[in-house]
Design a protein around this nucleic acid. Structure first.
Lengths: 205, 205
DNA sequence: TGTACATCAGTGAACGCGCGTTCACTGATGTAC
DNA sequence: TGTACATCAGTGAACGCGCGTTCACTGATGTAC
């Protein structure tokens, strides 16, 4: 926060962090360029030295989010080896952990209305991150008999949907916050039931 | 759209519809009181004859959404009788159908940031709608052996999360829109796998 | 080591804009007699 | 059926506000000699 003289030193990143902070606290529409500049101790006009405008700033925040997200997923998946099942479950848990630890990034990525195509850099980061989920699903897919094996893209979609739904409905304020269960429990048991449905967990566990 | 003279006749509902339309097209932050008034062919000040302000209008839109939602769920559940399983699946499909048919309501309910507690009427409508989901889950729950039966609130949470996740990620623009599958297929197969995991569908179907 | 100068990050004033909200008002409607 | 009057829905002008963006500028930094 402390400026060192006239030049900020690392304004670009400071603005991104202000953006993330504001988005996390007040939602995507709560973020204003002016407020972010204020938080970084700088004039709104200074923002234009580093970004093309408001949306460009959000896009960069989202890009960094996909970068972190991809790394986390990749790590969770690798760590779960050699069991594909364990790897898959770890990936699911990592998803929720990410949403909790990086709420600003999460919102910038999934709730800000910024299209994945907005910048080439954003698109590349998002594609890579989604690729990790896909890879994880494909590895798990090997363990299902080929004739009854659903397309990997399909069940990676299921897991993603359930994870995202849990985050949106149960991990923040409204509207499912009245649930007596923690988001972690909901997601873990939900994925458990789902994997059992695929025949990947013994019915009795 | 046509005003009949000085008095609008049904301004209150016209404003709500403009609100829903704007929210559906441009997201919750794309909705402005002034624009809604313009769309209803009326001065912004006229809005205050019917609502306390901007947020109050959104809350009423959301309330009507919960009302419709509750009715639809209730109907889908009843129609699926006497099989609890069929009723549950119908309820899941009705969820997606609702999100598709009433996008403005859906966004007002789940993405506008309006708290369920904002007005007593909104709270009542939301509670009732959630009660229907719960009832559906409880009925289905009877068919699971008591010792391995998860709490109904738990698996209604799972289904809700997956449904909501599918809507958010695959039914609109970003970011999962690149998926080769339709939201309907994703949700239906996802719920299928899940119910199989609960032992409610034969593994081989 | 010292000076001249190019580079560039940030300033601050200004802009036009649309917003939500308020106010005293006026025109239309409906009811009492 | 006709008139007087209360009710109330909508007007239109005005407000203060913070926004995103632009511009010519200035102060700090770093490099060449």
């Amino acid at each position: 926060m402390l400026k060192r003289g006239y030049h900020h030193g690392n304004l670009r990143q400071a603005l991104i962090e202000a953006c993330l902070h504001l988005i996390a606290e007040q939602g995507p529409q709560g973020f204003t360029l002016s407020e972010a500049a204020r938080e970084a101790g700088v004039t709104p006009a200074a923002v234009y030295r580093h970004f093309e405008g408001r949306e460009d700033l959000i896009a960069e925040a989202a890009r960094q989010g996909y970068e972190i997200f991809g790394d986390l997923m990749d790590y969770a998946f690798d760590k779960g080896q050699p069991s594909a099942l364990a790897a898959f479950e770890a990936t699911g848990r990592a998803y929720l952990a990410f949403a909790r630890k990086y709420p600003g990034h999460y919102v910038a990525m999934f709730e800000s209305g910024i299209g994945m195509q907005r910048t080439p850099e954003l698109h590349a980061a998002a594609t890579r991150a989604m690729g990790v989920l896909q890879k994880s699903a494909e590895a798990l897919s090997q363990h299902i008999p080929p004739d009854k094996r659903p397309p990997p893209a399909m069940f990676s979609a299921h897991i993603w949907a359930m994870s995202h739904g849990v985050v949106e409905l149960f991990a923040r304020g409204s509207p499912g916050s009245t649930s007596p269960f923690s988001p972690e429990d909901i997601l873990e048991s939900g994925i458990g039931v789902y994997l059992r449905g695929l025949g990947l967990i013994a019915p009795d566990r």
